[in-house]
C-alpha cells in the first residue's frame, strides 16, 4: 500500500524529470561527447589541453577565485541584513523580503548596464567625486575586478540573504534565552549559539552563490577588463571565435566537474551535522 502511494507520488515528478532529460541531460551528454570528438572521431586532445594549456588553468583558477571572493563578500554583506530581517515580525519581514527580491524583476543585463552608467569615467560616481574635489582625474572603476565584484554581489546578494534568513528564522528563540540565563551576555549568546546555528542557512546561500558565480558570463563581460574574464567567457571564445568546440566542451565539462566537486565537499563536510540536514531551510 505504502509502496503504491510512493509510486503515485513519484509520478508527480515525471514532468520535471522529462524536462530535465530533454533540456538538460541531452545537451549535457552532447557536451560530454563533444569533448572527446575531434576532426577524425575520438580524441583525447581537447581533454588533455585542460592540463597542458596554461590559459585554461589560469582562467579556471581565476574563475574559482572570483566565485570565492564574491561569495565571501555576499556573506559578509548579506549576513547582517539577514539577521536584521530574521528579527522582524513576520509581516514586516515579508515586506522586506519583497524589497530584497525586487531586483529580480529587472534583467541581469539591465542591472549590469546600470553599473556602466554609474561607474563610467563620466558617470555619476566619478562626477560626484570630482565635484567634491576628491579626485582630479576620473577614477577607472569600470573594466576592473572591482566593478565585476560590485555587479556580481549586487545580483547574488538576495540569493545569499534569503536562505540565510530562512535558517535564522528557524532558530528557536528559546535557545538564546537559555544561553542568556546560563550566563552568556547578548554578544556571547549570539556567537556561541545563534551564529553556529545560522551557519547552515548561510552556507546554503553561500554554496548557491558560489556555484552561480562559477557560471557567470554577462557581468564579467560587460564590467570587467580582460583580466576579469572567466571560464564562461573562455568557452564563449572557443565556440564563437576559434571554433574549437572540442576544447569548449572540455572546458564546460571541467566546470561541471568542479561544481560537482564543490557540492560533494559541502556534503561531506556537513553530512554529520543535523542542522545542515535540510540545508537549514527547515527543521
Amino acid at each position: 500500500m505504502k509502496a503504491k502511494q510512493n509510486w503515485r507520488l513519484m509520478a508527480l515528478l515525471l514532468p520535471a524529470i522529462a524536462l530535465i532529460c530533454v533540456l538538460f541531460l541531452n545537451p549535457l551528454v552532447g557536451v560530454l561527447i563533444q569533448s572527446f570528438v575531434g576532426d577524425d572521431g575520438f580524441t583525447l586532445k581537447s581533454i588533455s589541453k585542460l592540463w597542458t594549456s596554461r590559459l585554461a588553468r589560469v582562467v579556471l583558477e581565476r574563475t574559482f577565485w572570483l566565485a570565492f571572493t564574491v561569495t565571501v563578500i555576499c556573506l559578509l554583506v548579506g549576513y547582517p541584513a539577514a539577521y536584521y530581517m530574521s528579527q522582524l515580525r513576520p509581516r514586516k519581514r515579508a515586506m522586506i523580503t519583497y524589497l530584497v527580491l525586487l531586483p529580480f524583476w529587472i534583467s541581469i543585463l539591465i542591472r549590469t548596464y546600470t553599473w556602466i552608467i554609474l561607474l563610467g569615467r563620466e558617470g555619476l560616481v566619478n562626477n560626484a567625486l570630482q565635484w567634491l574635489g576628491l579626485t582630479e582625474q576620473p577614477v577607472q572603476f569600470l573594466y576592473t575586478n572591482f566593478a565585476v565584484h560590485l555587479g556580481m554581489v549586487q545580483i547574488l546578494l538576495p540569493i545569499v540573504i534569503l536562505p540565510t534568513v530562512a535558517g535564522m528564522v528557524n532558530i528557536d528563540g528559546g535557545l538564546i534565552k537559555a544561553a542568556r540565563v546560563m550566563g552568556a551576555s547578548p554578544i556571547r549568546a549570539f556567537w556561541s549559539v545563534f551564529f553556529p546555528l545560522s551557519l547552515s542557512g548561510a552556507a546554503t546561500g553561500g554554496l548557491i552563490c558560489f556555484i552561480l558565480s562559477l557560471g557567470f558570463y554577462v557581468t564579467p563581460t560587460l564590467l570587467g577588463g580582460q583580466k576579469s574574464l572567466i571560464i564562461a567567457n573562455l568557452i564563449d571564445l572557443q565556440v564563437h571565435k576559434t571554433l574549437n568546440w572540442g576544447f569548449a566542451a572540455a572546458l564546460a565539462t571541467a566546470l561541471l566537474l568542479a561544481t560537482l566537486l564543490c557540492l560533494l565537499i559541502f556534503w561531506l563536510a556537513t553530512r554529520n551535522r543535523p542542522e545542515f540536514a535540510t540545508g537549514g531551510l527547515s527543521r
Binding site: R54, L55, V58, Q226, L234, T242, N244
Partner: peptide, 14 residues
C-alpha cells in the same frame, strides 16, 4: 587564424 587567436587569447587573458 586558429594559432594566432589562441596566442591572442592567452596574451589578453593572462
Amino acid at each position: 587564424l586558429e594559432e594566432v587567436t589562441e596566442r591572442w587569447t592567452e596574451w589578453t587573458l593572462l
